[in-house]
Amino acid sequence: MRVTEQMRYDGVANNLSQLSSRQAKAAQEAQSGVRVNLPSDDPIAAAQLARLAASQSQVAARRSTISAVRGDAELAESSLQQASDLMAGAKDLAMQAGNGSLGAGERATLARQVKDIRDQLIGIANTKGTSGYLFAGSATETLPFSTSGAFNGNDDAHVVDIGNSTPSAVNASGAKAFTTAGGRDVFGDLDALYNALNSNDTTAIAASLDGIDRSRSQITNAQTAVGITLNKLDASDSVQSAIDLQNSKSISDVGAADPAKAYSTLVQLNNALQQSVTVGKSILDLAAFKQF
């Protein structure tokens, strides 16, 4: 084959340009530690990375939801604990009042203590969290219990997406904890005790004991329900965190460069490029006219 000058130049130039472009790509990969810099570097991986990024975003959103609603749920649980303790106190007072040696004056004192408990309980039932009144259902901006004990809220659930197939309710039901929706009107029961004490009616006092007991267990049930919700939040959080970990691992598996391989490829191409320059130089030096 007849070899002309232009062929020599073109050959050297083509080889050098191909090698440099491969070397530049290898350098980028080794430097950035990322294998898929552009969709065309690996189309399947790029599509997968886009989906993984979406999943990561959903996981992050769920985890932030969990941490956002967790505070209020914990506050509801401790509030209901206090409420249950107060009811226990009310029961103690009722037991004391059953003692036949007490007089009307002493029972009136006990009645004032029961009223204190009732007022405290209304305060607890009106506890406000980060998203409004805890026990008001969806009427989060309306004071749920008036001083008379009337309920102004509702029994709507506050639902969020924490990764379960159906939306999960995360609020404590004030209606079920404190009103007849749960079986007993807690404030009504306390009022009955208070009235019985004030009127020094031992039969009525004895009769109110059962109501106080039932009210207390109603509050405890509500507390248990919140506890279950908290467990559910914890369980979901660990599931989401596992997904998060798995996604991060997949993202790194799919998109990250293997540092050892990337570096050795780079070194290899650097050497090849250097050799190609040397060889090219000697090819171009091979001109007959230099010998004449």
Partner: peptide, 21 residues
Amino acid sequence: LGSALNDVFASFSALASNPND
């Protein structure tokens, strides 16, 4: 565009956790 799309859905999630905010 992809991350912006994801953010829209994440914002709905956050809205659910505190709808009155």
